[in-house]
Amino acid sequence: MTSPYELSVRAILERLIAFPTVCRTKNVELIDWVEAFLQGLGARCHRVPGREDGRFNLFASIGPDTPDGIVLSAHSDVVPVEGQPWTTDPFVLTERDGKLYGRGSSDMKGFLACMLVAARYAASQSGLSAPLHLAISYDEEIGCVGVHSMLHDLAARGFQARGCVIGEPTGLRAVSGHKGKLAARIVCHGLAAHSANPSRGCNAIGLATEMVKAIESLQEELKETGVQDAQYEVPYSTLQVGLIRGGVALNIVPDQCEVQFEMRLLPGVDPQPLLDRLRAVADRLCAERRHARIEIETLNTYPGLHTSDSASFLHEIMRITGDNAPSRIGFGTEGGLFREYLGMPVVVCGPGSIDRAHKADEFILPEELQDGVRFVEQVADMLSRS
């Protein structure tokens, strides 16, 4: 039987994918396995529980206890597979036609597997002058909610490092920025009545349509006159409505309608003025229509990431990747939170492609995994030269 400490990166990925760590479910079995693996290498491990039973973050360090180490970070959770037309078992790593299929293979257990290989590599080095840190979070896929307890704990302990690599799938391009996100809910309350005489009621769906119009108007304004950054595929901040629920029957004036929307904001763009604009519209509607009441609630938010193009840590990573300039990405990561809590430069860089994530038959190429291993081992080599 092969020792865990002799497993190839592919074999490690196979173990990780076998843990069905779907977001909003327990990840304790995966954390148990990873922690045992790291402790066998002599790592100093610190498990940080979340508020939910059976869900944990894990932070581990290898090497001297100095403030100039490097953090490699991955989330342990994956998105659900229900309703997707998989042609393989999503929780069994399956090779077919030169591809390795499995939920999380690209997003982002592939990088987590590379991290464990990097830890083994770092533990074998005798000349480390700074530590390699591994940060593993939970429930990233529902808005980066799980990592807060770990980052709060690290900040309270005065943790410092020279930089952090978030290994989301970028094709191993060095990324220095991404947008932030705010998710919110608008609940419109009216008054039910028979549809034969709708004027006796207050139509909550009608209120909701006005709020949707206000969101679309703000979107157009941001597109035309808002802050722009041409390095992003969509160079402006965006708002969009994703869910509407309202009404119980066609012949009843609806007394409630819920609208959920999101903002994808360029780094540094404050969502509060936009929310204030929407609340002003809601107040006007309530003043104009009897029985109307509108609530606006923020459900989740995380900041964008902006690492300065002049940051030395960014340039060290770019020397490894061979990038002449950093990239920007449209999807979010935990990077902005690492920056916000710990004040360190953050680079997003990992193997695989985000285009394969969250879909049926998600995969990573074997050569991408090996490239990921070479990348993290070169990052670990930085700790011997510091």
Rank of each mutant, 00 (worst) to 15 (best):
T2G: 00
S3D: 15
S8K: 08
F19E: 01
F19A: 01
P20K: 04
K26R: 14
L30W: 00
A43I: 09
L58T: 10
P64E: 09
P80F: 07
P80S: 12
G83P: 04
Q84Y: 11
C114P: 06
M115K: 01
A119T: 07
R120I: 07
R120V: 07
P131L: 01
I136C: 08
C144S: 15
D153R: 11
F159M: 10
Q160K: 15
V165T: 11
K179V: 10
G180F: 04
A196R: 09
A208S: 14
E220S: 14
E233S: 10
Q240K: 13
V248S: 13
Q260K: 15
F261G: 06
F261W: 11
P271V: 10
P273I: 11
L275A: 07
R290C: 03
I294R: 06
T298M: 13
P303V: 07
E316K: 12
G322R: 05
T333N: 03
L337S: 11
F338M: 12
L342M: 05
G343T: 09
P345N: 05
C349S: 05
C349I: 02
A360K: 08
E362F: 06
I364Y: 00
L365S: 03
V373W: 10
R374Q: 14
Q378L: 06
L383C: 08
R385F: 05
R385W: 12
